[in-house]
């Protein structure tokens, strides 16, 4: 199989994995080190230069050799997400204690986003689909049942220790990760039928579930976050889902 396609299919699998990891629990020391080593630092951000784009020599998003980049490939949210996350990571100093301070800062923001709730709240980055879609705004409502049935149809279930409902964003992303991995496997074995079938299921899951609620979730997340890191994650999350939906559509033809 096309090596490039293989890499694309593996790439989307691991992107789902990372997003799931970021939304499941706090960044730990190991993950922080890995993230800091990644190239999505601010200077990597891409956006079309002038006349409508920014053309400031000091703009971290400026890219001088982007003339060959088609406008169609430009995703403002993806770039902004990269810029925000990269900017946050680049801003962590290298003195002793800097990384620990950043981890605490990120953990506090994670708790603010996903753990700390007021009883009076109704608009917040609730990580469960059913909270966003049920009439009475509850966990474990209809969406959880639907998602659980879909998971089971694919031989996927929540881990034994999982206590947050199957419609949690991390679990839904891991479900996509699992199907994406199976797609890559099928494609590398030239089993196009299986790959297409899996891609159809992913398209449907994106349409009926993730894209149905994650944009609202991510918007609340972006509003609530106090670090650029999680503001960036919120943007990247939705941008990734949308881009991936477009990719799946194109792959399916």
């Amino acid at each position: 199989m096309d090596e490039m396609l293989c890499s694309v299919l593996e790439g989307r699998t691991t992107a789902y994995g990372l997003l799931a990891r970021l939304l499941n629990r706090e960044v730990d020391e190991e993950l922080l080190a890995e993230l800091r080593a990644l190239p999505f630092a601010a200077d990597e951000a891409v956006r079309p230069n002038g006349p409508n784009g920014v053309n400031d020599a000091n703009d971290p998003g400026r890219r001088d050799n982007a003339a060959d980049l088609p406008i169609a490939a430009y995703s403002a949210d993806l770039d902004e997400g990269n810029r925000l996350m990269g900017g946050y990571l680049a801003g962590i100093g290298n003195e002793s204690g800097d990384a620990q301070r950043a981890l605490t800062d990120l953990a506090v923001d994670f708790a603010r986003l996903f753990v700390v709730r007021k009883r009076s709240e109704s608009v917040a980055p609730y990580p469960n689909e059913s909270v966003h879609t049920s009439k009475e705004h509850l966990r474990m409502d209809g969406a959880r049942d639907e998602v659980r049935a879909l998971f089971r149809a694919e031989g996927v279930r929540a881990a034994d220790a999982w206590r947050l409902g199957e419609d949690h964003v991390a679990l839904e992303l891991e479900f996509m990760q699992t199907l994406a991995a199976r797609t890559a496997e099928a494609a590398s074995a030239n089993d196009e039928e299986t790959a297409d079938d899996l891609l159809s299921k992913q398209a449907s899951f994106l349409d009926r579930h993730l894209l149905n609620w994650v944009p609202a979730f991510a918007e609340a997340m972006g509003r609530t976050a106090r670090t650029d890191f999680y503001r960036g994650v919120a943007l990247l999350l939705v941008a990734h889902l949308r881009e991936d939906r477009a990719l799946v559509k194109q792959l399916l033809g």
């Binding site: 790439g11 699998t13 992107a15 990644l38 190239p39 999505f40 993806l78 990269n82 990247l236 990734h240």
Partner: peptide
């Protein structure tokens, strides 16, 4: 972006 993120 996706590929790079994936390594982590």
């Amino acid at each position: 972006g996706a590929a790079a993120l994936g390594t982590a």
